[in-house]
Structure formats: C-alpha cells, structure tokens
Design a binder for these strands. Structure first.
Length: 489
RNA sequence: GGUCCUGUGGCCGAGCGGCUAGGCAGAGGUCUGCAAAACCUUCCACAGCGGUUCGAAUCCGCUCGGGACCUCCA
C-alpha cells in the first residue's frame, strides 16, 4: 500500500528513489533561523515543508534524527570585512546582551512553530554551543590546505578547492564565471585572496561584543561553518537529507558542501531538498526588503494585506494546497478560499462517526488511500493529497444524504485516512470551536424556543433569533436531523 | 550582464506526451417556510508563434511576460 518514496534532489536535479543510507534510520538536517528578529510567514513555510518530510518519513516507519539549528552568531550583514554580526547589531539596537536577543527570538520562533503544529526537531543545536568543534574543523581545513590565515581571520580557499573539486555543483555555478563576475567589487575584502573566499573564522574588532579565543586570536565563527560542523557531529560524515530554503542554495549550501568535502573528503549529503519561497504580490517575502508579514499579524488580522484573522491551521492548510518546491503567492483572496475549503473538510470528518452504514459499500476507499500514498510518495505532493481528501469529502456527503452506501469497515478506513494524512502527516489538527457548557446549555434553550416558533409558523420570530445570533457570529443551520450551530470568528 | 526557475480558466493551485485535478468564486437545479449547508449539473484554461509526434498544457526552438540567485535572507 505504502509504495516507494521518490524525492526531488536539487543536487542532481532529478527525482530519485529514496533509499536511506542505513535503514531504518534517516538523518535529516535543515537550516534553521537566525534569531535576530521575528520569523515571518515565509520562514515558516520552509519549516512547515520540512515538518511534512519529517512526519511522512516517520509515518513510513523510519527512525528519523532531525537536526535543525539555531544560528545565534556569525551571520554578517554583508561580506565585507567590516560587516556587522546581525545579532550583535540588534543587541546594540535594543540595548540588550546578545544572548538576550538570541533567547528572545528563539522563544518567539518556538511559539510560532507550536502555533503551526510543527514538531520539534530531534536536536536543535546552536552555533555558540559548538565553538570548539568549529575551531577544530577550521584547523582541519587549514591542515588539508584548503584554508589560509589572514590578519587573524581564516578563509576558505575556493579557487584552490575548485581545482580538485566541483565547486558550484549544487547551484549550477561555474567557478570561472564567478571569478570574472566578482573581480570588480573587492571593496573592504582586502584580507581575502579572492572575493569568492568565505570566512571560516573571523577576527573580531575590539568593540565587537561577541568574540571568543581561538588559535588565530579573538574572533567568531563564519556563518556557513556551523551547519557543516553540527550536521557532522550529530548525523555523521554522511547523512540522508539536507534541507533549507531555496535562497540558501548559494552561497550557503554550496559552502557547506565545500567545507565538508575539504574537511573529511566525503560528500556529506545524499539528497538535497529545497523549499521554495513564499511571495507577496509576486515578490519574495524578505526581511531585508521589508516585504513580509508576521504570523501574529495573520492570526489577529492586523495587517494591510489581510481583511480578517486566519487561524494557524487555516494557514497551514493553505500551504498544503501548494507543492513545497513551487513558489506560493500569498493573498487574502487565496486564504479565504483555503479557509472555506478547510471548513468543508472539517465538517465532513465530523460527520464520519455518525454515518449510517450498510452491508454494501459503494465508496472505493482503497483507491482513495492509494491515491494519498501515491501523492506523498511523489516528492511529498500534498496538493494532490488535499484534492483526494476533497474527493473523500464528497463521498461522505453523498452517503450522508443517502445517495450512496458505505460499510462499517469502510467508514473506519476513511477515518484512518483523515487521521493519517490530515492530522499525522500534514499536521493539521481540527480546531474545535465548541462552546463551554454554559454556552451549549444556552444554545439548547434558544434553539428550542426557535423550534417552537417555527412549529407555530412564527417565522418572524425564528428568523429574528437566527439573525441576531448571526450578529454574534453564531451561525445556525437547519438540517433534517435538527438544528446545528457553530461559532465562527 | 551571468546562472536558473516559471507563465494553466475570475482567483489560488496540481498535472509534465493520450484519460474530469482539487479548492474558492459564477450560473442552473434538488432540498428548505425562507436562509444556510449539502449534493447534482454547468460555464470559464493551458502566454504567443513555429517544430517533433498518430496525438502536446506536457518534449524542442524562438518571442514576450514574471520571479529567484549572483551581497544578508527560509
């Protein structure tokens, strides 16, 4: 039933059959956030995408060690020698200790992840907790001859590395073109032999507040290094999956590949997976351009981009309707459409336990299950899973209105289908919006009064009750079985 | 400028050689006191021009849009 999983490997640009290096174990590393300010919805998309990968691999029975780092040092504003560390800069700005910044935004990140029902990774290492390892790896790369010390900093020698290795393989870049393209702008990079070179270790100026001792003097690690070091430490020199946002392909992931290869001579990663960008009016959401918005703005509806509040699960469902490797455009209209569809799915699943069953079943539940697995196996194609779930919704409704029959066994299969794919794999928890006991009791009284009014053909009264409840966001539906009510925000 | 991705109906978004994607919106209908919901039916597509093929949204070429990366970004 489950079939074979195929994943699109951005290194080979092909869909490949997924074969774990050492089954049933899978090692997966995903580049986490730099915690110098709030994560935006675009950031969230990447982590939700890899949450699906994590969940599905586990569903298939793999024992996954999922490492997702927190970058808390070394991420510079730009590549120049005087480039400021993002966290140090923010610390100055907010007048806080750098580690306070780190803590503050790490907490915020975790809160958002929790709201989106993103599972915690197995290990969430930070760069500052792995300085010793980063210094060791830097030394290792120097010893292998692929890095050089210059004025208290250590740089990776890209051109030398490229003579014996394929630098640019992941991002499709050619070393000669890179050299000629960047030769002109060498401003402020005097310590480097080539502008292509990147820092493994950076000398800290005296006023720099984040600095540590090293064999090369006081400094701090380069951004790319932490991922190489921590993935190696927790997943070994070779592991199965490395993920991250598309925008990290170059230079970050390219540098990671080079570092790993230089340090231990091995290709570390078997499958590279890249999640695509979330766009806003067709353009990439980005912290640096200010074109983004925050999850909290979405949940409260306080943004010029949205007309109302959307729940975290609605947003997650919205993202499931698009493949992770395609860009997804964010708009109020699209969110509204997703919200309506999502409610329809929830309404149908709620009907499931109370469906009238028969001996014969006219619902092809095997086909529905198969389609869900086939879709997930085809590079985690959640939009196709969602489409299949909507087909299941249609079947449920047909049974409900008596146009089709279903057996007890098949109801159980459908129940499992929604549990597996909607809840476990896509991570969407049905949001119960049931009132408390008092509210339920009150509603019972009110609906009873309305029922009396209707029986007496006092429609003025029954409509008044309905209209006034509507004004309180309570929606009433008269069905054959009686009157239902829901509270809608 | 270089490298790469992309252009699907009113909107979002799958499909990637032949078979209805799906959701939302629109129209008609069934049901209903009326609504709502649900279901049924229906409308609206593959940027343009060539080529390959028995057959192309799907492959190839060109043209025209849009975007990403080449500085920091998930």
């Amino acid at each position: 039933m489950q079939g074979e999983l195929y994943v699109y490997n951005t290194l080979t640009k092909k869909k490949e059959k997924f074969q774990a290096l050492t089954p049933p174990f899978v090692g997966m590393y995903v580049c986490g956030p730099t915690v110098y300010n709030d994560v935006h919805i675009g950031n969230c998309r990447t982590f939700i995408s890899f949450d699906i990968v994590f969940r599905y691999l586990q569903h298939l029975g793999y024992k996954v060690r999922y490492v997702r780092n927190i970058t808390d040092v070394g991420h510079l504003e730009n590549d120049a020698d005087n480039g400021e560390d993002k966290i140090a800069k923010k610390a100055k700005l907010e007048n806080l200790e750098p580690m306070e910044i780190v803590q503050k935004y790490t907490n915020g990140f975790h809160d958002v992840m929790k709201a989106f029902n993103v599972l915690s990774p197995s290990i969430e290492p930070t760069a500052t907790a792995h300085l010793v390892e980063q210094i060791e790896t830097t030394q290792q790369i120097i010893d292998k001859g692929f890095a050089y010390v210059s004025n208290g900093s250590v740089y990776f020698d890209v051109e030398k590395f490229a003579k014996t290795n394929h630098y640019g393989e992941l991002s499709g870049r050619k070393i000669d073109e890179l050299i000629s393209a960047t030769r002109e702008n060498l401003d402020g990079q005097d310590d480097k032999k080539s502008s292509l070179d990147f820092a493994l270790w950076k000398q800290a100026s005296p006023e720099h507040i984040m600095q540590w001792n090293s064999p090369w003097g006081k400094g701090f690690p380069g951004w790319h290094l932490e991922c190489s070091v921590m993935s190696t430490k927790y997943l070994g020199e070779q592991f199965d999956i490395h993920g991250g946002g598309m925008d990290l392909k170059f230079p970050h992931h390219e540098c990671e590949i080079a570092q790993n290869k230089a340090a231990n001579g091995k290709e570390a990663v078997k499958y590279w997976l890249h999640a695509n960008m979330l766009t806003l009016n067709g353009e990439k959401m980005s912290k640096s351009t200010g074109k983004f918005f925050l999850p909290s703005q979405l949940f409260t509806g306080e943004s010029e981009f949205v007309s109302k509040a959307y729940s975290p699960m609605t947003v997650r469902f919205f993202m499931m309707q698009c493949h992770y490797a395609s860009t997804l455009d964010f708009s109020d209209e699209a969110l509204q459409a997703a919200e309506k569809g999502f409610k329809r799915i929830l309404a149908a699943t709620a009907l499931l336990p109370e469906l009238k069953t028969s001996e014969n079943s006219q619902v092809d539940v095997t086909e529905l299950s198969k389609r869900c697995y086939d879709s997930m196996n085809d590079d985690f194609n959640t939009p196709m899973v969602v489409a299949t779930l909507f087909d299941a919704v249609k079947e449920i409704n047909l049974v409900k209105q008596g146009s089709k029959t279903i057996s007890v066994e098949h109801v159980a299969v459908l129940q499992k289908l929604f549990n597996d794919f909607l809840i476990d794999i896509m991570g969407i928890i049905p949001e119960e919006e049931k009132g408390n006991d008092v509210a339920n009791g009150l509603m019972e009284v009110i609906l009873d009064l309305r029922k009396d009014a209707k029986q007496n053909k006092n429609y003025t009264m029954s409509d008044k009750i309905r209209d006034e409840l509507k004004a309180l966001n309570i929606v009433i539906k008269d069905t054959k079985e009686g009157t239902e009510w829901t509270y809608e925000k």
